[in-house]
Every structure is written in C-alpha cells, then in structure tokens.
Design a protein around this nucleic acid. Structure first.
Lengths: 218, 218
DNA sequence: ACGACTTTGGATCGCCGATCCAACCATGGC
DNA sequence: GCCATGGTTGGATCGGCGATCCAAAGTCGT
C-alpha cells in the first residue's frame, strides 16, 4: 500500500539516476533492482520509459559525450582545438569510466556521431585533403576509443582488488621487469617508463603523434 | 547415472571448447551451461580447471593472440613487419570478434603483453628514439585496440538484426546523409565514403598515419 | 587392498533482465 | 459532476545466468 509517486517519472530522470549509479559503483551497480530502489518505483514504470538496459546505458553515455563536446570552446587554432577536444573526452572518460567501456562497445550511436563530427570538422579546418579526411578522422576516433576502453578497464581493476594506482603500476612494472630480457626485450626495457608514466600525458603524446602523421600526409 | 568421462578433462580442452562456442554464437553463447552440455560434464568439473568466466575468456583470447603473433613472419623491413603484424591482428579480430571486445576490456594480460612486445620491438628496430618509444608503442597499440572494439561491436550488430554488411552500411550512410548539413557538415559530407569504405583498408590507412607521425618524431 | 587425494557431475543459491498484469489516476465527453 | 478511457505505475513472476557446494567415482602411493 505504498503511496504512489506524483512527481512525473520521466526518461530524463531515469537516465540521470542511472548515471549516478554508474558513477558510484561502476557498471555492475546499474541494475533495474537498484534503479527501482533509488527511484522508489517498480520495474514497469522504468520499462515504460526505457526500452531495455542497453538503451539506458547508451542514453547515459550520449548525455555525457554531448556535454563534453558542447562545453569545449573552439579556439581559432584547429590544432589546439583538436587537442582540447581530445583531452576533454579523455577527462570525461576518466571521470566516468563506464562511458569508455560503452563507447568501445556500441557503434553508430549519437555519442559517436558527435565525436566524429567534432573531430572531422577540425581536421578539415586543419587542411587535411578531402581524400584523406575520412580515414584520418576514423583513425583518430579509434585511437581515442582504444584509450577509452583501456582506461575503463584500468578503473575496473582499481575499483576493486587493487589499492591505489601508483602501487598497482609499480606491481605491473615489476612483473615486466622480471620478464626474460631475451624473450621480451622491449617490455623489459620500458618497465621503468610504465611505472613513471602519466596516462593523460601519454594520451596527449599519442594525439600529437597522430597529428604529426596527418601533417605528413597533407 | 550417466557414465563418467575417461578422456582427461583439461583446462586446454575447456578453453578450446569455449573458443568454439564464442566463434559459433558470439559472446552471449559462452555460458557454463552450454559448456557442460558440449563437454558432457558438470559445473564442478569445469570450475576445477578454470577460476571463473573472466579467466576462461582471457585464456581463450590469449590463445588467439599468441597464435597470430607467433605466426607472423618478421621480414627484414621493420616497417613492413609492423604493417603485417597490425593486419594479422585485424584479421584475427575480424574472424573472432569476441577477441576484440575482450582486448579492449581486460588490460595487463598476456595477450596485451605480447602485442606490446611485438609492436615495441619493431618500433625500436625502426629507429624510434628511446624517449618516444614507450609513447609511440602505446599510441599504436591503443589504435589497434580501438579498431578491435569497434569491429567487435559491428560484428555484434550484424550477427543479429541486420542482414548483411553492405546493406547496413548503406542504411547508416543514408542516415548520415540526411543529417542537417549546417549542424553536421563533416558527417554529412563523408557519408558517401562511409558507404563505400573497406574496413581493412581504412585500418591500414590509420596504421600508416601513425607510422608517419612516429617517423616525424624520429 | 586400503586410505588419502584428485577429479567429476549435478543440485542448489542468489541475482539478473525482462515480461506481464492489476491497480491507479488524469483527462475529456456528456 | 461523473464515469469511461487510456496513459502510468508498482510489484509478482519467469527463465537463465555465474557461482558454490558436496557426494560419488576414480586414481595412486604404500
């Protein structure tokens, strides 16, 4: 005989609640049971506004990405703007790792469309020839998606099991250092850099490598 | 009172059966129930050899990647070898999309270690300076992972719901073409290229962009 | 040949996404 | 002013999942 809600339950409210659950407890925390509890409602009410769980995840992701891309101020320099957009995406995914996992899983959705549009337009402004534009945008977006997925995976590891990032990196670096230098010369050699590296800086270094490659094609 | 198996059930056999299930029916087809049926055994027997489902997926992925990287013949030219390795990974992920999804989800596993090692060693042979080696390898690997994830996602879309690739691409391209050119100038413009593009060729174009960028750093 | 240890098969648990339906309530025709 | 109608809501329920647990069956050392 619980009382009925009077404040309209809307798709918007549900998506927002879903995003909060995801931020708080990771991807595993988003369940319809948890949603009914948080929203003090039942399954039927939620399913009335949302098709299924994929729909919900995708909608939440679209929201976050749209916020990032509309929030970025496009300066006069396309090169600088590209780096800003890329960093904005990185930071958003860093703050909401579930977005990263979702992006590298559901293609052809509004979020990805917006990312392609922003990236492609800036590459065009940069003077990339028509011929190479499509491939270049695809490559850059895929790089961002790759980093996004790895970031999300790392966040999952750190969320439960591992103490802090520094200690975890040190552990993996130690494993790399202990590998046979004859069989794994590269990994063995760069283990120190792994321990000391900064994800954000390395991400930007990758963007710059890509931009240099684009410039070479121009 | 079913008879007991006499051919030793081993981790190897289980991982192989898991890979077959994944190849046949996608990621959703890998369940312990399906495994018990296919192997004519029970849950206990499987859990005796395998820690959990993640362990199983990771082991199957490691197998596929190891096969690719050991199978690639390294020619004299490091540049050509890098492209060969990248294409080998692309083809393997194309043939087993679940590998792509897994790679962009579980970091610090043997499969990714092997990929880093192969990539890094070849970049080193290419003459990339010590300073840039770590970042360059990271960028290239992340690009491959990004494509891997998208490929896996596309395969999932095509596996159920959509008829064939050409028709699906045409549909998405049509949606892109119908977007407002004022709001989505880039996406609108390249919609034709989307319809006509070849995934494999575009992947290789992206690899070349990165290699050009890395050469610029040299 | 007997006991300790390993391996196997299946019953069972708790949780999940999804479906379904009865109760509820705002709105509009009369 | 009242009741029929159709868009909402809450919760019982279903089948399937990963995981745990245990008794039975095999294996091996002594």
């Amino acid at each position: 005989m619980a009382k009925r809600r009077t404040d309209g339950l809307s798709r918007e409210v549900i998506v927002k609640a879903a995003a909060e659950l995801l931020d708080d407890g990771g991807e595993a925390a988003l369940t319809f049971r948890a949603l009914t509890t948080r929203l003090s409602t039942g399954y039927g009410a939620i399913y009335h506004h949302v098709a299924n769980k994929s729909d919900l995840l995708a909608a939440a992701t679209d929201d976050v990405i749209a916020d990032v891309l509309t929030g970025v101020v496009v300066t006069g320099d396309p090169l600088e703007a590209l780096r800003t957009v890329a960093l904005g995406l990185f930071d958003a995914i860093d703050a909401h790792p579930w977005v990263g996992a979702q992006l590298s899983r559901e293609p052809w959705r509004p979020a990805l469309l917006e990312i392609y549009e922003s990236t492609g337009r800036l590459l065009d402004a940069l003077g990339v020839p028509e011929q190479a534009l499509f491939d270049a945008a695809g490559a850059l977006v895929n790089y961002v998606l790759g980093v996004a997925g790895q970031n999300a995976a790392n966040a999952r590891v750190l969320a439960f099991g591992e103490a802090d990032r520094t200690a975890f990196l040190a552990k993996v670096a130690a494993q790399w250092a202990e590998l046979d230098p004859a069989r794994y010369p590269f990994v063995h050699r760069v283990s120190t850099r792994l321990r000391e590296h900064d994800d954000r800086a390395q991400f930007l270094a990758g963007v710059d490598i890509f931009l240099a490659g684009i410039a070479a094609l121009r």
